[in-house]
Amino acid sequence: MSTLNTAVQAAKEAGKLIRQKAAVAKQVQYKSSAQDLVTEVDQASEAMIRKQLLSQYPEHVILGEEGVEPGAKASKEALEEHRGCEHLWIVDPIDGTTNFVHGFPMFCVSIAYAYNQEVVAGVIYDPLRDELFTAEKGKGAFLNGKEIRISNEKTLEESLLATGFPAGDKEARQRNLEGILKLSPLCRNIRAGGSAALHLAYVAAGRLTGFWELDLNAWDLAAGSLLVLEAGGDVTDTAGHGYDLVVRHISASNGHIHPFLLNALKEAQATGFENMVK
C-alpha cells in the first residue's frame, strides 16, 4: 500500500470515530491555555492513526500532536529531535479541537508523510462533510478524487482571506490582530474558521484566496501546505521564505496575491518575526 493510500485509510478510520463522537458529551482537558483544548477523542484518534501507519510501515517515525508537551518551545524541540528522520509522519488527529469541543463544525484529520524532511504526501479529511483532500508531490491535489486548483483572483480587493488566533502566545495573537486590521480594508473579507489545515485545503480548492497565521506547528501545516503547492499556489513563511517543516508563521495563497499579502503583513509589523523567534 502506498504512503498516500495508507494515510487515506488512517484518516478515514479516525474520521469515523470523530464523527461518531461529535454530538456526544466530551471530557475536556486543558493544555497550554484555555484556548488550547484537547479531548479524549484527540488521543483516541491519534492512537488509531498510529496503529494504522505503523502496521504498514513499522520502521517509520511518527510526530503527532498528542505526543508533544503543550507550548511552542516543546513543539520546536520535538521537531528538532525528528530532523534526522528519513521517513517521518506528521499527524494532527483533530485540527480544530476547540471547534470540536464547542460543536462548531469545522475540524479535520491531517496526516502528512515527509521523506528526508520534505513533505511528499498529504491528506486532510473533514469527517462531517466527508471531504477528503489529498496530494502527492508532483501529482496534483484532489478533493474526493477530483483535481482541484487555486482561485483566479489577481488583487487583494477581490480576495477572500482567512486567518486564525494563536492559542498560546499573546504576542503572536496581537501581531495577528494587527494583520487583520491592516488587511481587512484591503480585501473583500476575512474569515477565521479555527482550523489551519482546512484553511489551507480551502486555498488549494479555490474557496479561499489566501491564508496566514502566526505561531503554528508542523502538524497544523504539513499536509495543507503540500495541497496548496500541488494545486498551483504559493506557500512561504510570512517573511517570504520557502516552506519547510520548521515554519511556524505561515502565508499561503493562489500565488497572484502573495506579494501583496506579504507586503501588507510587513507594513503592519505582523509577520511574527518582530521581536519573536521563528
Rank of each mutant, 00 (worst) to 15 (best):
S2G: 07
L4Y: 10
N5A: 14
N5D: 15
A7S: 15
V8G: 08
Q9M: 08
Q9E: 14
A10V: 02
A10C: 04
A14W: 06
G15A: 04
I18C: 06
I18R: 11
R19H: 13
A25Y: 09
K26I: 11
Q29T: 14
S32R: 07
Q35I: 07
L37Q: 09
L37W: 01
V38G: 10
E40W: 03
V41Y: 06
D42P: 05
E46G: 07
M48G: 04
I49R: 03
L54C: 03
L54V: 03
L54Y: 07
L54D: 04
Y57C: 00
P58T: 13
V61I: 13
I62W: 05
K73Y: 11
E77T: 11
E77D: 13
E80P: 00
H82P: 00
R83K: 15
C85P: 00
W89H: 00
V91N: 01
V91A: 02
V91D: 02
P93M: 06
P93L: 07
I94P: 09
I94Y: 04
T97G: 02
T98W: 14
F100T: 02
F100M: 08
G103A: 08
F107H: 09
C108H: 01
A112N: 06
Y113S: 11
A114Q: 04
Y115D: 09
V119M: 12
D126G: 06
D126F: 05
D130N: 14
D130A: 08
E131G: 02
F133P: 09
T134G: 08
E136T: 12
K137E: 13
G140C: 03
N144M: 05
I148N: 03
R149T: 14
L156S: 05
L156F: 05
A162W: 03
A162Q: 06
T163W: 07
G164F: 05
A172F: 09
A172Y: 09
L183C: 08
S184Q: 13
P185Y: 02
N189D: 11
I190K: 12
R191L: 15
A192I: 01
A192E: 04
A192R: 01
S195N: 05
A197F: 00
L200P: 03
V203D: 10
F211L: 10
D215H: 09
D220I: 04
S225W: 03
S225V: 08
S225M: 06
L227N: 01
L227R: 03
E230Q: 15
A231V: 10
G232Y: 04
G233K: 03
V235Y: 03
T236V: 02
H241A: 12
Y243M: 03
V246G: 00
V246S: 13
V246D: 09
V247D: 10
R248K: 11
I250Q: 09
N254Y: 05
N254A: 02
I257L: 04
I257G: 00
N263R: 14
E267M: 11
E267K: 15
A268E: 10
